[in-house]
């Protein structure tokens, strides 16, 4: 620590308050403002858009308080626009797995203390500033973020039960404890980075002999038709509070289908191209990326009512 300022740490040597570091403080609880998309295939998904206006260009720390035990995740955060007064309108997208309108979570927003309104009637407590004497790093009146648990977690490497069944299967999920917290009073901050795609292809082939079929050989005119269909699902890593566990799994973020068919004709062994065609949405890839272990944090919604 420098020769001025404020520094407090606990008996484990962890810094609690420092004039050099900003604590996160509670800003608000928000509910979703719109639905960006949904589907009912392979477990289904609803993509909820949340918005929050903050006097800060730093991304908020977002804790997700589930309102159902479906797999869910914050899949993107960005500044949507800037207001005329200079505030940032942040968009936060949260995907929740489910086929029948799974409940959207509540989001608890934490940010730097300068972006949290000062309680008008509260003149008690401690405020710590950086050396400029203006920028607050800690303000006890603004509900500093308290962390009640957390660790690191890795996305499960397996997603589905078999190659032609694309619904995510919970038996593959990675489980951690709730660090002694109650499943009814918990919220988590767990970024979703991992993505995966699985697909399967079916093929059809037909030969139609309009000439004379002699022991399987077509003497005359023959039509040959081939078609392949590829069904794919695109997954994002998600999380759930279920069975008193914190689980890392997958939700089906998008689905698609692609086909290709071709036709050719033969006349006494001579092949004529009958044309080909493709359609549907092309599959993106086949694999999984961003599979690193990532930190997650727990806190309690009841601390911020």
């Amino acid at each position: 620590m420098s020769t001025y300022g404020f520094h407090a740490q606990n008996t484990s040597g962890q810094v609690l308050i420092s004039s050099n570091l900003q604590n996160f403080h509670f800003h608000s609880v928000i509910t979703y403002s719109s639905i960006l998309g949904d589907h009912d295939t392979y477990g289904g998904m609803v993509n909820y858009r949340f918005q929050i206006t903050l006097d800060s260009t730093k991304p908020p720390l977002v804790f997700l308080n589930p309102q159902c035990n479906s797999i869910q995740a914050v899949i993107g955060v960005d500044i949507l626009t800037t207001t005329t007064s200079g505030d940032s309108v942040w968009g936060i997208d949260v995907a929740v797995a489910g086929t029948s309108s799974p409940a959207a979570p509540k989001l608890y927003i934490f940010t730097e203390p300068g972006a949290v309104p000062t309680p008008v009637s509260d003149s008690y407590g401690l405020t710590v500033y950086t050396p400029d004497g203006v920028t607050a790093t800690f303000d006890s009146r603004k509900s500093p973020l308290l962390i009640n648990g957390g660790s690191n977690i890795t996305p499960p490497t397996s997603i589905i039960a078999s190659t032609n069944a694309l619904s995510p299967v919970e038996t593959h999920w990675v489980e951690h404890s709730l660090n002694g917290l109650s499943a009814t009073d918990i919220m988590f901050c767990a970024p979703s980075l991992a993505q995966a795609e699985r697909e399967y292809t079916t093929s059809q082939h037909n030969e139609d002999c309009t000439g004379l079929d002699v022991c399987g050989a077509c003497i005359g005119w023959e039509e040959v038709w081939d078609r392949s269909d590829t069904w794919w699902a695109f997954y994002r890593n998600g999380f759930q509070i279920k069975d008193n566990k914190f689980k890392s799994g997958w939700l089906t973020y998008n689905v698609g289908h692609h086909y290709h068919e071709s036709e050719s004709d033969r006349f006494i062994g001579i092949k004529y191209d009958g044309g080909s065609g493709s359609g549907g949405q092309q599959a993106i890839n086949n694999g999984q990326i961003n599979m690193n272990s990532n930190a997650y944090l727990f806190s309690k919604p009841s601390l911020y009512t």
Partner: peptide
């Protein structure tokens, strides 16, 4: 109680 040295938190660097 708003904050206590019994609490644990993370600070933004």
């Amino acid at each position: 109680l708003g904050f206590s040295s019994d609490n644990v938190t993370w600070n933004q660097i």
